[in-house]
Design a protein around this nucleic acid. Structure first.
Length: 760
DNA sequence: TTTAGGCATTAGCCTAAGGAAGT
DNA sequence: ACTTCCTTAGGCTAATGCCT
C-alpha cells in the first residue's frame, strides 16, 4: 500500500519491549494512522565503561566531527527510549536528551510540511520518502469554551462549561445547554462536551486550534469530563512544563495560537500592549470581539436573550482564533521548513529553541556531534557572567535640524560570518582569541544560509508583491538571523560561548566607533549612535546625496557581507535631558520626517506602563515642539491639568498596564500593579497584564495602596487621584521636552508669580 | 522558559536625622 | 536630660519595559 500525505502527529508506545512509532498522516482523503517499527533509541559516548546491562541493545563504533576534527565514538542503542535516560549517566554521553519522536524526525529528515510518500503493508511502514515541499493546505477546526464562574477565577471542580463553539472551514457551531433563541439547546454540560468531541471526530480536521487552549480550554474540558465521568473518544495528553502546560490531542495537531503569538509572532509583527484575543484580533484583522457583560452572568440561566448573546460571543471567539491562525500559519510553515519537526513542536518554541533545532538539524547533516545541554549549575554560572555589550553614544539634549540616520545591515550576523565566529572554530592562545579559517563554523554557515534564503525570498517578493507566504518567509528569516548572537550568550544554549558572544559585541563596538570617527573626519557632526546606528548632521545643501556618496566610499573598506545603509533623512530630531544629571538621555528620541511623520523611541508615549492620557499628551507635545509650536503645547498641558483637577477626565484614559512578572506572593517590593492585583482577590498568574488606576485616597498613602484594578474602579465608580496624575504622569512626561526649549515647570503650571511670592 | 546587554525611570524599602511629646 | 514615637529626606535597588 502507498499513502501520500503530511505528517501531523507522532507518538510511540512499547510493544514486546520495543518502541513502535505511531504517525498520523493527512491527505485530501482523510487521515491515516501508520506504524514504524525498528527505530531504536540511542545516544553517543566518548568512552565505553565496563558495563553489561540487558537494557543495552547494541553498541556501534561511529565517527563524528568535534571541533572540526573527526573522532571515533560509540553509539549506544537501548531497547526502549526510557533507558537512554536511565543509562546515560554511566557514560560520557552525548545527544541523550533528545526526545525519542524528535530523534526519529531529525534522523529521517521529515517534517509536517514535507509531502511524504509512504509504503506500508498492514499499516506498518516499509519506506518513507519526501516527494515535495509544496505548501500543505490543512483543514483547521477552531474552538473556544465559556465557563459559568461563581468566583473570580473559574474553578473546574465547581464551575461548569456552559458553551463550546467551533469554527471549521466556514461552518460555525455552538454546543450549549443554556436556553437561548438561536442555537440548539442540549440537555446538559455532559452532552455539550460529548457532542463537541463527536463533531471533531466527524469532521476529523488535521489541526485543532484554540487561544490559550494549552493552559485553559483543554485542561478545563479534561477536568470537567473527569468530574462528570465522561468517556472522551479522543485522548488529551497534558504535559506540565514548569507551571505551563502543553496539550497534545492524539491524532490531531493541536496548536495554541496564543503561545506562538507570545513567543515569536508578537516579537516582530505586533505592537499591541496586551496579547489578549481582543487586542490581537484588532491589530491583525481589524476586528473586535463581541461585547458581553460578565457582571450579568449570574442571570444566564433565566435570561434567554442574554444566553443568546453569550453564545454569539463564544462563536465570535472561535472565528477570530481561526482567522488569526490563518495568518500565523504562514509563519509556522516557514519555520517548519527550516528546522523540521512537527507544527505542534514549532508552534510552542521560543526563539532560542528555533535557533537550537535549526543548528541541530544542520549539525546532523554535517555529521557534527551536538553538544549537551548545560547542567543547572552551568546555567546558573552562565547567567551570572555578563560580557560587555554594545556602544551607546551620549547625546546632548536639544533639537537638531537635518539629521541623517545610517545603520549597519544585520550588524551582528554579518560579524559572525565575516569573522567565522563559532564555538567550534574558536582558538585560545595566551589570552588571545582567534577563529580558525580552516573550515566554516556551524553557526556562520547557518547564518549565511539564512542570509541567502532571505535575499532569494526578497527577490521573489519583488516579482510577486502580494505573496503573503513570501512575506512571512522574509520576516521569519530576519528573526532567525538576529537570534544567533543572542543564542551564543544564552545560558541554556547547547552552543553557548561566552567568548564568542563577547567577541561579536566587541567587534560591533569597534565598527560603530570606527564609523563615528570616519564620519567626523568627513565633517559630519555625530548626534547619537546606538549599537549599529549613527545619527549625523551637517550644513549641506543636499544631505541625502552627500551621505549616499560617503556610504559608497565607506562600504568599500568593510569586509563582506558588512554594509552601512542610509535609513532615512529627517527634518528635525529631539533629544532630552536625562532625569538625573544634565546629560542627554540615551535610547530616547523623536524624529520628524520631511512629510511630517513623527517617530518616537523610548519616551513614555511608547511604554505601556504609562497612562494613555500621559502618553497622548506627550505625543502631542513632542509633535508641537518639533513643529515649533511652543505656546500650543503649553496650552494643551495646562488645559489637561485643569481637566484633571476638575475630575473631568474619563477613567479609560488613566489606566496603566503593567505585566505581572512573578508570582503575586514572591515580590520583594510590591509595586502599584502588584498591590492592585492582590487587593482584587483575583488569581492572577505571571505573564498577565494588570490594568489599574490610581484612585483617590489619603494624601499620605503610598501610591501602590491607592492602585485599584480598572475593572473594579469602574464598577465601584471610584474617583481618580488628580494629584498623582498631574505630578507623576503628566508633568514627568512633558517636562524634559519643554526644558529643551527653555520652558520650566513653573511656566507649565502657570504659577510663576505664585512661586516667586512663596519662595522669593 | 523566556536569544544578548544597555539604559531610563519610578517607587518601595530602609535608615538616619530631627522634632515633638512625655517622663 | 533622657526616652519614645513620628515624620521626612535621601540612598539604594527592585522592577519594568524600552532600544539595538
Amino acid at each position: 500500500m502507498e499513502t501520500n500525505g503530511y505528517l501531523i502527529d507522532i507518538d510511540y508506545y512499547i510493544e514486546e519491549n520495543s518502541p513502535v512509532i505511531e504517525i498520523y498522516i493527512v491527505n485530501e482523503k482523510g487521515k491515516e494512522r501508520l506504524l514504524f517499527k525498528g527505530f531504536k533509541p540511542y545516544f553517543y559516548s566518548l568512552s565505553l565503561p565496563e558495563i553489561n546491562d540487558e537494557r543495552i541493545e547494541n553498541i556501534e563504533k561511529v565517527k563524528k566531527i568535534v571541533n572540526g576534527k573527526e573522532i571515533e565514538l560509540y553509539k549506544i542503542y537501548t531497547k526502549i527510549p526510557a533507558d537512554v535516560k536511565n543509562l546515560r549517566n554511566y557514560f560520557e554521553s552525548y545527544e541523550s536528551d533528545i526526545l525519542f519522536t524528535r530523534r526519529f524526525l531529525i534522523d529521517k529528515d521529515i517534517s509536517s510540511v514535507d509531502l511524504l510518500k509512504i509504503d506500508h503493508s498492514d499499516y506498518v511502514i516499509q519506506k518513507i520518502e519526501k516527494i515535495s515541499n509544496q505548501v500543505p493546505n490543512f483543514k483547521v477546526l477552531a474552538f473556544d469554551i465559556e465557563v459559568f464562574s461563581r468566583s473570580k477565577t473559574p474553578i473546574p471542580s465547581q464551575d461548569p462549561i456552559i458553551s463550546i463553539s467551533t469554527f471549521y472551514e466556514g461552518e460555525q457551531k455552538v454546543f450549549t445547554w443554556l436556553k437561548n433563541n438561536k442555537y440548539e439547546t442540549l440537555k446538559d454540560e455532559s452532552e455539550c462536551i460529548l457532542k463537541f468531541f463527536e463533531y471533531i471526530k466527524e469532521k476529523d480536521p488535521a489541526i485543532l486550534i484554540g487561544y490559550n487552549s494549552d493552559n485553559f480550554d483543554l485542561p478545563y474540558i479534561k477536568k470537567r469530563a473527569e468530574i462528570l465521568n465522561l468517556n472522551l473518544p479522543i485522548e488529551i495528553e497534558i504535559k506540565n512544563k514548569e507551571e505551563l502546560k502543553e496539550c497534545r490531542v492524539k491524532g490531531f495537531c493541536h496548536i495554541d495560537v496564543y503561545t506562538f503569538i507570545k513567543n515569536i509572532y508578537s516579537k516582530y509583527n505586533l505592537k499591541s500592549e496586551k496579547l489578549t484575543l481582543d487586542e490581537v484580533a484588532y491589530e491583525m484583522l481589524n476586528e473586535k470581539k463581541d461585547q458581553f457583560d460578565w457582571s450579568k452572568a449570574q442571570s444566564l440561566f433565566e435570561d434567554s436573550d442574554l444566553s443568546t448573546q453569550l453564545c454569539d460571543y463564544n462563536l465570535k471567539d472561535s472565528y477570530l482564533t481561526y482567522k488569526i491562525y490563518k495568518e500565523i500559519e504562514l509563519h509556522l510553515i516557514e519555520i517548519n521548513r527550516l528546522i523540521g519537526l512537527t507544527l505542534f513542536d514549532i508552534s510552542r518554541m521560543t526563539s532560542g529553541m528555533i535557533v537550537e533545532y535549526m543548528l541541530m538539524k544542520r549539525a546532523k547533516e554535517r555529521n557534527i556531534l551536538i553538544p549537551n545541554k548545560p547542567t543547572k549549575e552551568e546555567v546558573y554560572e552562565r547567567i551570572n557572567k555578563k560580557f560587555q555589550g554594545a556602544f551607546v553614544y551620549q547625546p546632548s539634549p536639544g533639537i537638531y535640524e537635518n539629521v541623517a540616520v545610517v545603520d549597519f545591515r544585520s550588524l551582528y550576523p554579518s560579524i559572525i560570518i565575516a569573522n567565522n565566529i563559532d564555538p567550534f572554530t574558536i582558538r585560545k592562545e595566551n589570552n588571545q582569541i582567534t577563529f580558525s579559517k580552516d573550515f566554516k563554523g556551524l553557526i556562520p554557515e547557518t547564518v549565511e544560509e539564512v542570509f541567502k534564503l532571505r535575499s532569494e525570498a526578497k527577490d521573489q517578493l519583488k516579482k510577486d508583491k502580494e505573496n503573503k507566504q513570501l512575506m512571512a518567509r522574509v520576516s521569519v528569516l530576519k528573526l532567525i538571523a538576529n537570534s544567533f548572537y543572542g543564542y551564543l550568550g544564552y545560558a541554556n544554549s547547547r552552543l553557548y560561548s561566552f567568548e564568542c558572544g563577547a567577541e561579536v559585541a566587541r567587534l560591533g563596538r569597534e565598527y560603530i566607533l570606527k564609523t563615528i570617527s570616519f564620519m567626523e573626519s568627513k565633517g559630519f557632526k555625530v548626534v547619537y549612535a546606538d549599537t549599529d546606528s549613527n545619527f549625523l548632521t551637517k550644513n549641506s545643501k543636499n544631505l541625502e546625496q552627500e551621505i549616499k556618496e560617503i556610504l559608497k566610499e565607506y562600504n568599500e573598506t568593510l569586509p563582506k557581507p558588512m554594509e552601512l545603509e542610509l535609513q532615512g533623512v529627517y527634518k528635525r530630531a529631539l533629544f532630552v535631558k536625562s532625569q538625573k544629571g544634565n546629560e542627554g538621555a540615551r535610547k530616547k528620541y523623536a524624529l520628524l520626517s520631511e512629510n511630517g511623520e513623527i517617530i518616537i523611541k523610548g519616551f513614555q508615549s511608547v511604554r505601556r506602563d504609562w497612562s494613555l492620557l500621559a502618553k497622548e499628551i506627550q505625543y502631542e507635545v513632542i509633535k508641537l515642539i518639533l513643529n515649533d509650536k511652543k505656546e500650543e503645547a503649553l496650552n494643551l498641558v495646562r488645559k489637561t491639568i485643569e481637566m484633571l483637577n476638575k475630575g473631568e477626565v474619563s477613567l479609560d484614559k488613566l489606566v496603566i498596564h503593567t505585566m505581572l512578572r512573578k508570582d503575586l506572593s514572591s515580590y520583594e517590593q510590591a509595586g502599584r500593579h502588584v498591590e492592585a492585583a492582590r487587593k482584587s482577590g483575583i488569581d492572577f498568574q505571571p505573564g498577565e497584564t494588570i490594568d489599574y488606576i490610581i484612585a483617590k485616597g489619603r494624601e499620605k498613602d503610598k501610591t501602590s495602596s491607592k492602585a485599584v484594578l480598572f475593572k473594579i474602579a469602574k464598577e465601584k465608580g471610584l474617583k481618580y487621584d488628580a494629584n498623582y496624575y498631574i505630578n507623576n504622569q503628566i508633568i514627568p512626561s512633558v517636562l524634559s521636552i519643554f526644558e529643551t526649549v527653555g520652558i520650566k515647570k513653573e511656566d507649565i503650571l502657570g504659577k510663576r508669580s505664585d512661586s516667586l511670592l512663596r519662595y522669593g
